[in-house]
């Protein structure tokens, strides 16, 4: 299943809650799955006493992956060709994140139909945590 150019309009968007009430356990799971063991993400004592943060916080790449889940759910299997994000603010345990992709452009390149998307993920207070862009292949 894939998106079809004929069904899409610039400005169309898709939104998903990608994590509800993020737990410290999920952050630790991500450390194990990604191989990123920086203790600011997993060790409460280090994060607070040594690094001076209020508590541990999520890896930027965890938020990127969560937002990517929304993208791949929407654009379909094997369709994502490009994806970039800026880490705008930190994601903390307890956060609920909503990711949204909005169509910026529908175009053709080397005989392939492509859609350019703008990505924003916000926390429960409406504050952006990542912002970025993506490109996916679509059908005619």
């Amino acid at each position: 299943m894939a998106l079809r150019a004929s069904d899409l309009r610039i400005g169309d968007s898709h939104e998903e809650v990608v994590v509800h009430n993020l737990s410290r356990t999920q952050i630790v799971q991500y450390a194990g799955a990604s191989g990123d063991y920086n203790p600011v993400h997993t060790d409460e004592v280090f994060a607070t006493k040594v690094a001076g943060y209020p508590t541990v916080f999520a890896h930027g790449m965890l938020t990127m992956g969560l937002s990517g889940k929304m993208l791949t759910n929407w654009v379909g299997d094997g369709r994502l060709t490009k994806y970039g994000v800026r880490f705008v603010s930190q994601v903390w345990p307890g956060d609920t994140l909503t990711s949204r992709a909005t169509i910026q452009e529908i175009r053709e390149e080397n005989g392939e139909r492509l859609v350019d998307l703008e990505i924003t993920t916000e926390n429960q207070d409406g504050r952006a945590v990542v912002q970025g862009s993506a490109t996916a292949r679509i059908d005619a």
Binding site: V18, Q26, G32, A33, K69, T72
Partner: peptide, 16 residues
């Protein structure tokens, strides 16, 4: 195995 651990951490259930 690593794909499964990753999907668990992401809450991603895509059968692909």
């Amino acid at each position: 195995a690593m794909i499964r651990h990753w999907c668990d951490a992401m809450g991603d259930q895509n059968p692909a």
